[in-house]
Computed example of a mutant assay.
Amino acid sequence: MKQQPPGWVEISRDNDTQIEAIRAHFTGHAYDPHWHDSYLVGVTEQGVQQFHSRRKRHQSRPGNVFLLEPGELHDGDAVDDSGFTYRMLYIDPTLMQQQLGDLFTRLPQHFELSFAATLSQDRQLAHATFYAYQALQDNEPKMVKEAALQDLFTALTRHHHWQKAPAAAPADTQLALQARDYLHSCFTENIGLSDMAQALGVDRFRLSREFQASYGLPPHAWLIQLRLVQARRLLASGIPPVDVAARLGFADQSHLGRWFKRAYQLTPARYQRHCTNLPDCG
């Protein structure tokens, strides 16, 4: 049997649902703090998967399910030389809402889906996650995939709660919220911290302090994450990495590649090849 290298990533993207199915193994430091614009539902297959999320350290062991919401900052490390292996699904929030709409006859108004806990030992949910991953990875017939996903979303309903949409931010976090909105409005531009501070009428030291206190990353790191999230979408749609880099404000393709690999342990070209079946051009 062919042996896998010490660290590896297998990835596919389902054409019907746009769900990404990832199986990966890491030793040592896996990835830096980052976030996604998708819901992440994963299960640890082997080893101990250590990560920080919601300002806490978590250790996921074989059979544990980990649940992350869009925008939830997390990292990843192995605790010993044997490393860890996991399977994970990236689920778009729109698809999540559609599936929940099918399960519930009446969804609450102005509510957001939130997972009650980051880790779960629910065996039924773990099994459903494994099964859904395998159905998508193997590109089973559409009906098989739909049945697997229905089981997964049914199992997930025991691990969520309806969270009221956030009210107006209090004064001490309003600046951070304004800064985040500013970054989202011009993330492809070559903006500086001084530019943002001037636009918001505040000094850049206070701006950095308030932003990191609210979101766990300094503004420049958040900006990179915004670009990487969009890069995944553009790459999955077949746009060449060199053009993606130019569109998103990276200095060049190698600059995009360095940041992309730090966050996802994949080169942009390899990610694109697995998501689109395009030839790997480097």
Rank of each mutant, 00 (worst) to 15 (best):
Y271F: 15
G249A: 00
G257S: 15
D77F: 12
L217Q: 06
H160G: 08
H184R: 12
H110A: 11
Y90V: 00
Q174M: 03
A78L: 11
G7V: 05
D203F: 01
A147N: 04
P5R: 06
G42E: 04
Q46V: 13
N139C: 06
S254M: 11
P33Y: 05
P268D: 09
G238A: 03
W162V: 01
A231M: 01
L256N: 00
Y133V: 07
A251R: 11
F51D: 11
F250V: 08
K2Q: 11
I19Y: 04
A21D: 02
S237F: 00
H34L: 04
Q124W: 06
D32S: 07
C275G: 02
R13C: 09
D151W: 06
H34A: 07
P5F: 07
L235Q: 11
R206Q: 14
H74F: 15
A30N: 09
K164E: 15
R158W: 13
Q99H: 14
N15T: 13
A165E: 15
H159D: 04
Q253H: 07
Y271I: 06
S53I: 08
L223P: 00
L235N: 10
R87T: 09
H52L: 08
A167Q: 14
H255Q: 14
F51G: 10
P166I: 03
H34F: 00
L207E: 07
R23S: 13
D81Y: 08
Q18G: 03
L136C: 01
H127M: 12
Q121T: 13
R262I: 03
A21Y: 00
N190Y: 11
Q230K: 05
R123Y: 12
L226E: 08
L175P: 04
Q18A: 12
D203A: 00
E210F: 03
E210Q: 13
E20L: 15
Q50D: 12
G63R: 05
P166S: 05
S53M: 10
Y215M: 05
A116N: 08
L193N: 09
I91A: 03
L226Q: 07
R204P: 02
A197M: 13
V144M: 03
T267K: 05
T267W: 12
A169V: 10
A179P: 09
W162P: 02
H58A: 10
L107R: 01
V144W: 02
G83M: 10
I19G: 01
Y182A: 11
L234C: 02
A199R: 10
I11L: 15
G238R: 03
P268A: 05
P93S: 07
H274F: 07
I91P: 04
L200I: 05
P141T: 00
L200Y: 00
A168Y: 09
G201Q: 09
A245S: 01
R209A: 13
R123K: 15
T17E: 06
D32F: 07
D151I: 02
C281F: 07
E189V: 00
S194Q: 13
G28M: 07
E146G: 02
G101R: 06
A231C: 01
T188Q: 08
G7D: 13
F250M: 10
Q59A: 13
T27I: 14
A126M: 09
A213Q: 12
P268W: 08
V48L: 11
N64D: 15
P70N: 07
V229F: 05
S237V: 00
A221G: 06
